Amino acid sequence: MPDAASEDAAASFDPLRPRLTRVAYRMLGSVADAEDVVQEAFIRWMKADRAEVRVPEAFLRRTVTRLCLDQLKSARHQRETYIGEWLPDPIVGGEEDEDVTLPLMLALERLSPLERAAFLLHDVFGLDYEEVARTIQRDPAACRQLAARARTHVREARPRFHVEKERGLELATAFFAASRSGDMTAFGAMLAADVSIHSDGGGKRPAAPEPILGFNNVMKLHKALAILFAKHGSQLVRTGLINGLPGFVTLEGDGELQTTALEIEDGKVTAIYVMRNPDKLKHLH
């Protein structure tokens, strides 16, 4: 049976868990790692002198951010040895922080851990630089510089054209239908000339090891895939926002889930992000 102290810790922590998990996920790009970090923060919260903590959310956000910074040091090595292209775990249906889209998360991967933390805490979660400074243990002026540097690097990855959600989901539904039926005329009409495909199989399922670039190469791949879809099947599970982009979840012929997210500009698909790594899809089950 949990004691009174544990129940008190849980009662103050549990309402904050979703927000803390969002911070950790934005930092790490991994659902499982984010949940582990938040659970470690809860263990530390149980051991803390909670009567001395004036603002629990700020205390816990600092704890989570610092744990993430430690984790990112080892994550860098894991990214370098990862098989094929690395994409963040797909979050389906989450409409918070829709401006933190999948392309922006990939851009964040190119930042130093401190730049990433300063940018997310200030630009995404709205903290002032004094609080950012207390969180990452740097002075406010340094935090301003870190966030400014990050902003310069990620500017191109911020959404330039807002796609109305309903219109985006209509395009995602049409994309699924054309790609699975083999209607290459309808499929090609949706693509921009510089369209690209990014797929993450993690060495567990077949996926292109490098991005596939350009209209002709994307069309060629999907002509081949249409034959496989016809033979083995591909069932639509749901459409929705995936990391802030219109997309869909499918059950593929091998019995595994897959997510497809579409970056859309001026009504055309400019990038296709396909998650096939079963380890990164477990939370969707």
Rank of each mutant, 00 (worst) to 15 (best):
R110D: 12
A177Y: 07
H198Y: 11
I136K: 01
A107Q: 02
L104T: 08
A193Q: 07
E156I: 05
R158T: 13
R144Q: 13
T135G: 02
D200V: 04
R110A: 11
E164Q: 12
H153F: 11
F125Y: 13
E164G: 08
L120S: 05
D139S: 03
R155E: 14
A150S: 07
G201K: 00
F176S: 10
R180F: 11
A192H: 01
H122E: 07
E170I: 11
D123N: 14
E96S: 15
S196N: 04
F187G: 09
G182N: 10
Y129D: 04
A133P: 02
I136L: 06
E166H: 13
L171T: 13
M184D: 13
I197E: 14
A148W: 09
V195K: 00
M190K: 04
V163Q: 10
F175Q: 09
A172K: 06
G168N: 07
D99P: 01
G94R: 13
S179R: 11
R155I: 02
V154M: 07
L146V: 10
G126Y: 03
E109L: 14
G201F: 00
V195L: 00
R160V: 08
D123R: 15
L171G: 01
T173M: 15
M190G: 00
F119N: 06
K165S: 04
R180N: 14
R144G: 07
L169F: 09
R160F: 06
A174W: 08
F176L: 09
D194C: 03
E130V: 14
T101H: 05
G94K: 13
R158P: 01
D139P: 03
T101E: 14
D99W: 08
L111A: 03
R149M: 13
R167N: 11
A178H: 06
A172C: 08
F119I: 09
H162Q: 12
V124R: 07
E131C: 02
A148H: 12
A177N: 11
T101S: 12
H122T: 01
E131T: 13
L102S: 01
E96Y: 13
E166Q: 12
A172V: 07
A147K: 11
A189N: 11
K165E: 10
T173G: 14
D200L: 05
T185N: 10
S112V: 03
A150N: 05
L106D: 09
L104P: 05
A142K: 12
A118T: 04
S181M: 03
A157I: 06
F161L: 14
A189W: 00
A186I: 05
A192T: 03
A157F: 02
V132P: 02
L106R: 15
A157Q: 04
L121H: 04
A147C: 11
P103L: 06
G126M: 05
D194I: 05
E96D: 15
T101Q: 13
R167I: 12
E131D: 14
E109K: 10
L171F: 02
R180H: 15
A148E: 15
K165W: 00
L108K: 00
I197W: 07
E109I: 04
E156L: 12
V100I: 05
R155D: 14
K165C: 01
R160N: 13
L111D: 04
